[in-house]
Design a protein around this nucleic acid. Structure first.
Lengths: 123, 123
DNA sequence: TCAGATACGGATAAATTTTTCCCCTGTTGT
DNA sequence: ACAACAGGGGAAAAATTTATCCGTATCTGA
């Protein structure tokens, strides 16, 4: 695994939540799992822009942070299901607040973001 | 400036808020500005782990996203003060929710994060 | 038998972000 | 005269995160 070279700060709550939520797709993974999309292949279809590899890596991190649980069914073809842990569920209202703010201000945000970026490739 | 090569997604509120809040120090900058630390040098002292350069860059992005306003006093030695815009203020409750979650679960989080990372350099 | 679905993971490359280093302006204090 | 502080910013290196490409398995349906 990658070995950090720059010191980590874990002083306040913001540092801590940042540590478990940073990662391009983590919030969306939590969200979709909460909505009932449990299997890796379902999640990959919900987030087609992400490479299969990163989703697996981020799922593993979420699991190591005890936000989700992974259940492997010993069947063939393989079947895996993720679910939120109790701890992970406490994060749902938080993510919901984030999403609401974004939704409430969508137009303004979209405009500001695009303005700042010139002509970025979208979607 | 850096020119994006990977497409941006701006579909849902989560994408949008992510776009303005991602950046290692942005949330903390907003927080400290809200607490009354307005001048660049004060902010740098509050966040000594960040390089001076990045703070300036992230402040500029926050400004372009209209979350903060920059006032330059034409005096010598130079004096600059940042403040939250009305728009930026709407984000404070959101950040507060993030911080609270992190605070509530600090012990568990600290433990989980350190466990996953082996022996990371801290602070 | 071959294509496709399910799932996992190593190695390497590319993209992106952050740090480091050096330089600029002008005033104040020693 | 010189260091320190106030505020900036360009260029390049380093750190970190994501993407791409490949290879592992077993079973099902055409």
């Amino acid at each position: 695994m990658y070995e950090r070279k720059i010191p980590l700060s874990l002083n306040c709550g913001l540092d801590l939540i940042g540590e478990v939520l940073y990662g391009k797709w983590k919030i969306r993974l939590l969200w979709f799992i909460n909505e009932g999309y449990k299997r890796p292949s379902e999640l990959q279809r919900k987030i087609p822009n992400a490479s299969r590899r990163v989703l697996n890596m981020q799922l593993k991190e979420l699991e190591e942070h005890e936000l989700i649980a992974k259940k492997i069914y010993p069947v063939v073809p393989p079947k895996v299901e993720y679910s939120l842990t109790e701890f992970g569920e406490t994060l749902i209202p938080v993510i919901s607040v984030l999403g609401q703010w974004g939704d409430e201000h969508q137009e303004r945000l979209r405009h500001l973001i695009l303005k700042r970026l010139g002509n970025p490739p979208i979607e």
